[in-house]
Computed example of a mutant assay.
Amino acid sequence: MTARRQMRPTDVKRLNRSWRRSTEQRLALIVESVTGPFNIGSIFRTAAALGVEHVWLAGNATPPTNPKAQKTALGTDRYVPWSEPVPASEAVRTAKEAGFSVVAVELTGDAVPLHESPLGGDVCLAVGGEDHGCSPALLEAADAVSYIPQIGRVGSFNVAVAAAIALADARRQGWSAS
């Protein structure tokens, strides 16, 4: 039996290139009023890892150029095109004009569990600020709302973790559909 070993950087690049070639789905993100620079950096690092095409900042979101955001982004923000903050409804409109359906990740009465949401096509996920979540304007403009099922005693995830879970599930659904 051969001992398991971690892949070398060249092998990782080859593996990632293979996944990129087999990925047809377009993925984008709206980040509304996330002000914590470490959250922004983490979101951009995840977006770069999962091939997010564009990040629209909305509300009073901190840009990835913030020095503290750079500490967690580790330079990966250069791989993800992004737009300066605009009102949430404008970000949603721009994403829809670019051909994305917009799915907000939020706890609302009509939200469906993330794993049951139709995330297999060209989708733009939207996450909201650390304290208040997605604004009423964003929720109204979105095509759908999904939530991340949780069974523990804590009622919510950190926004960067929620974005990572939602983006990864969208990619999973996209790969399953193709």
Rank of each mutant, 00 (worst) to 15 (best):
A3P: 12
R4V: 02
R5G: 06
Q6S: 11
Q6E: 05
M7D: 06
M7L: 15
D11N: 00
D11S: 00
V12P: 00
R14G: 03
R17C: 04
S18F: 05
W19G: 01
S22Q: 13
S22P: 10
S22Y: 05
S22A: 15
T23Q: 12
E24D: 12
Q25P: 06
Q25L: 05
A28S: 08
A28F: 02
V31Q: 00
V31I: 02
V31W: 00
V31P: 01
V31Y: 00
S33L: 06
T35G: 13
G36P: 12
G36H: 15
F38E: 08
N39Y: 09
I40N: 08
G41K: 13
S42H: 07
S42N: 09
I43H: 00
F44P: 04
R45Y: 08
T46M: 04
L50M: 13
G51P: 02
E53Y: 02
E53F: 01
H54W: 10
V55G: 02
W56A: 01
L57S: 09
L57P: 07
G59R: 01
N60I: 10
P64H: 01
T65P: 03
N66G: 10
P67S: 08
K68H: 13
K68D: 13
A69F: 11
A69H: 04
A69G: 06
T72C: 07
T76W: 14
T76I: 04
R78Q: 15
V80C: 01
E84L: 14
E84N: 15
P85M: 10
P87D: 11
S89M: 07
V92D: 06
V92P: 05
S101E: 05
V102I: 05
A104N: 12
L107T: 15
T108C: 04
T108S: 06
A111N: 07
A111H: 06
V112T: 14
P113Q: 08
L114K: 08
H115F: 12
H115V: 09
E116V: 04
S117N: 12
L119Q: 01
D122S: 15
V123E: 00
C124R: 04
V127C: 08
V127N: 03
G128H: 13
E130A: 10
C134Y: 07
C134R: 11
L139P: 05
E140V: 09
E140R: 13
E140I: 07
A141Y: 11
A141F: 05
A141T: 07
D143Q: 04
D143A: 04
A144F: 04
V145W: 03
Y147T: 11
I148W: 10
P149M: 03
P149Q: 11
R153P: 06
R153H: 09
V154S: 13
G155P: 13
G155S: 07
S156I: 14
F157M: 07
A160E: 02
A164F: 04
I165L: 14
I165N: 12
I165Y: 09
I165M: 07
A166F: 10
A166M: 12
L167S: 02
D169L: 02
A170N: 08
R171M: 15
Q173I: 07
Q173P: 15
G174V: 09
W175M: 14
S176N: 14
A177P: 05
